[in-house]
Amino acid sequence: MAMATAPTSVRAPARWQDFLQLLKPRVMSLVVFTALTGLVCAPEHLNPVLGAVAILCIAVGAGASGALNMWYDADIDAAMRRTRGRPVPAGRVQGADALALGIVLSLLSVMLMGVGVNWFAAGLLAFTILFYAVVYTMWLKRWTAQNIVIGGLAGALPPVIGWAAATGTAPLNAWLLCAIIFMWTPPHFWALSLYTSDDYAKAGVPMMPVVKGARSTRAQILIYSLLLIPVCVAPAFTGLGGVAYLAVSGLGGLVFLLLAWRLFRSHAGEAADPRNDDGLYDVRAGARDARNLFAFSILYLALMFATLLGEHLAGLKPLELFR
């Protein structure tokens, strides 16, 4: 049982900020950004009040799944340096309270989305919460090195929910936005895990570098990067992105590929190989390449979605090359 090794006694008074931390505000802000892009790019325009409610529901739903994740993963979080300060492993919030918060916010966000916006978007939101909290957190994360590949779907769905909130449908272009985040997730997280995998190994989480080693992880990062770039450029050919988007996704994609190639040729992650006995987060020569790709991956995704958002808010025409 996940909670077996987690502290159960409260050592300090639980502040409201601790409960806010359970909702993973930084993840929420990313979810809001991508969901807003989906909502704005949709061809039909939603009433601004309903649009704000839809984005709030998606944000709260994401926060709820974060709270459920922190409840279930308290044992893993307690074992990892990066997460041991979280409210549940630190003993500031009891696991049962995190669970209750997650369930209540999940129900409220899905119900309000259904009653106020539409039930298709509400269904997608419910699926996303369940997928992250149950399929990823309770199953994939502890079971397979493909955990973040499959589990990445939960993080990729918010733009589809935003699009569905505006139109009640989810056409190809909505799923293209989903596909971009889905294909972006493996190189992004594996680049990070190349220099934090000791932490995951100690917690018993089968991240790719822990299971397959650094060399195999670097090769898979390169393969996923090759698959990612065409997906990122595709919206310029389907009536979703304009000239600016084509330039950002294309040029950014070339830089992404260059960094992925450099990472592939480096020795990044080998200091963090569990067979070695180096310190946590020890960065040897070559790990800089992993950090470079990790940092650029965030910038690349943010720039692409910001460009799409900007083009649609400014009313710029998409390229429609193949339409």
Partner: peptide
């Protein structure tokens, strides 16, 4: 905030 949101959604819809 939740009560206000339900009210606003009702009026808009």
């Amino acid at each position: 905030v939740f009560v206000i949101l339900v009210y606003a959604v009702t009026i808009v819809n």
